[in-house]
């Protein structure tokens, strides 16, 4: 057994195993989040939600996946087939790959990159490419409109997303997520959401926009463009797009928890569980995911010009101002930081 483990710890196998584990995690996460989304929406709207398959409907995701696999994959006859089929993959792979750099618990990170934050930004920015591929490949006006909206939105909200990270990078002095988490040890008053409260709020909002959820779901906009870039998809290709959306929602929650809420650090020292600190990471991520769902089922959708104004005229100036405040405080009181 020991020798087998040592053999699997060698480089190509370690990487392949890790990627396999991440894919397993992300696909299951997508299923669980679908279920959570339906249940949350149901309770917010005073109904039961899915409650037939399994105890309290908990096995509904398994039935959903079975249904999706048994459905036919339709594609429009005029579609650009390779781009049409490649788009869900181009959306899912980036959303899954970033999980490689997320620290789940002490010493439990697959790739401790020294540029993990840049990696996160870089790989999430590929998602816009998948969106455009889906919109163009479908050769449908609704899809193209949705893709244009989505690309414009993701390019615009990338700016506040990156700017709001700079405060954390300055405070921790590192681009590595492991270092960022380690710098937040020793109780919840050391977490970065307190000194960086405006940045935290901006990152959270820009994160919702990057995950394309209500109130920023203009690329889908089911009441105006009937589903936007994914209107032509069916069966498992549609399932993969959904999985990518839920994976990126979980990813944004996990990164927010890591950067601003202390990652796996317990709220007070007495609750330190050692290697079981992933419980704290999971709890924080789940809480953020719940707030995402809460917002989704409570708020109306923004209009396109409101979306652009909000991003460029409110979020970006807040980031720049707080960046200067942080830099000034760090210069004035170098002993505190």
């Amino acid at each position: 057994m020991g020798t087998v483990l040592q053999y699997l710890d060698q480089e190509p196998f370690r990487f392949l195993l890790s990627v396999g584990a991440i894919l397993f995690l992300v696909l299951n996460l997508a299923a669980v989040f679908t279920m959570a989304e339906r249940k949350t929406s149901a309770y917010i709207q005073l109904r039961y939600g899915p409650n037939r398959v399994g105890p309290r409907g908990l096995l509904q995701p398994a039935a959903d996946v079975f249904k999706l696999f048994s459905k036919e994959n339709l594609s429009p006859s005029r579609a650009d087939l390779w781009i049409f089929l490649g788009a869900p993959i181009a959306m899912f792979i980036p959303a899954a790959l970033v999980w490689l750099v997320v620290p789940f618990a002490p010493n439990a990170v697959i790739a401790d990159l020294n540029v993990a934050i840049v990696f996160f930004i870089a790989v999430t920015s590929i998602g816009a490419l998948g969106l455009i591929m889906a919109g163009y490949g479908s050769r449908s006006t609704f899809s193209l409109l949705g893709a244009m909206r989505g690309a414009a939105q993701m390019i615009s909200y990338e700016v506040p997303l990156i700017l709001s990270l700079l405060g954390v990078i300055m405070l921790s002095g590192s681009l590595s997520l492991v270092d960022v988490v380690n710098a937040q040890g020793g109780g919840f008053w050391h977490w970065y959401f307190l000194p960086q409260l405006p940045m935290f709020i901006v990152f959270y909002i820009a994160g919702i926009a990057e995950a394309r959820r209500v109130p920023f779901d203009l690329p889908e906009g089911e009441s105006e463009i009937v589903g936007g870039f994914m209107v032509e998809y069916s069966g498992m290709t549609w399932g993969l797009i959904q999985a990518a959306e839920f994976a990126s929602m979980g990813l944004i929650s996990a990164i927010t928890a890591t950067l601003f809420l202390g990652g796996w650090q317990p709220p007070i020292e007495a609750l330190d569980f050692g290697n079981f600190n992933w419980i704290w990471f999971g709890l924080k991520t789940a809480l953020l995911v719940f707030t995402f769902q809460w917002i989704r089922w409570s708020l109306p959708r923004l209009r396109m010009d409101q979306l652009m104004d909000f991003g460029w005229k409110i979020l970006v100036p807040i980031c720049l101002i707080w960046l200067f405040v942080t830099a000034g405080l760090m210069l004035l009181f170098p002993s505190v930081f």
């Binding site: 840049v118 930004i121 920015s125 590929i126 490419l129 455009i132 690309a151 390019i155 990338e158």
Partner: peptide, 14 residues
């Protein structure tokens, strides 16, 4: 990846 894949290609496609 950030600049060329995420930004340049997307802007060109746009």
């Amino acid at each position: 990846v950030l600049i060329y894949v995420g930004a340049v290609t997307v802007v060109i496609l746009f």
